[in-house]
Amino acid sequence: MGEKRIIEVEGLVKHYGEVTALDGVSFSVEEGEIFGLLGPNGAGKTTLMEILCGLRRFNEGKATILGFDLVKDSRKVRGMIGFCPQETLLYDLLSVLENLAFSASLYSLNRKKFKERVDFSSKVLGVGEFLNRKVQQLSGGMKRRANLAASIIHDPPIVILDEPTVGFDPNIKREFWELIKTLKNHGKTVLLSTHDMYEADELCNRVAIMDKGKIVALDKPHVLKKTIGGEASIHIKVKDTQTKKALKPLDKYSHILRDNEIQIFVTNPWEIMPEVSNKLISQGILTEKIEIVEPTLEDVFIKLTGRKLTEE
């Protein structure tokens, strides 16, 4: 990753009538990183991305892409971005190759460059096997790959992905994550939005957690988890009838009971866990599950907002 700031956003405000979708958003994205916008639906992620892609105007603030002003140099900026929205924006009756050709024409790509990019899409994004098939004949996963290929056919330095894996089954999701990592390996700077904490954790070098149009936290995922999400905890599940009995020997530890699961918060869970286990055994309590759980970005979000990521 370079130190160069590719995207810089300062105090961005966007109103839809009475509703404030973005409320003074500021952040920067560095060259070659995968930057995630994590937040629930309605947090303002899509509005922010559409503003950066020149699809929406904003009321206040400033944004630059590679040093070019988003408003003054909008055409130049649009040429530097490959935008892949949630929905598949392909023409069903055209083949994948024809769709790629159309997208290339929007960016005035010459024939040689187009051929190079089709080769790239075929080899790296794996669209080669269905290049000449009509979009309406493709599976969901193929369509997403073709959609991504069409979005970056002009070889942009920045790729903006809005909820790239929403609605995917786990296998295709994982396959798509690999594609996104590949883009990073090819030198692209990726800005992606998601409400999937695992996706953000797996892919992003840095994550901005958004809620109600604001960035409430921004850092590397492990830093966020450690500083805001708290330490790892021991989670114990015993038979429902023995839960009350199990709490007694654990009194000396800081603990809570949530969803019939005992959660113990200590600074050294790996050292304490054998001791806890022995105490329960000595009391004749059978554990169904005992594990150390690391904090997640979900925990970070809950700590910051008091709500789960999946809540509206």
């Binding site: 892609c53 020149g54 699809l55 055409r75 130049k76 649009r78 040429g79 971005i81 935008f83 929205p85 924006l89 997208s103 929007l106 960016y107 069409a150 979005s151």
Partner: peptide, 8 residues
């Protein structure tokens, strides 16, 4: 949306 996001 795709067309508008391009420099055309």
């Amino acid at each position: 949306k795709k067309i508008r996001a391009s420099p055309i």
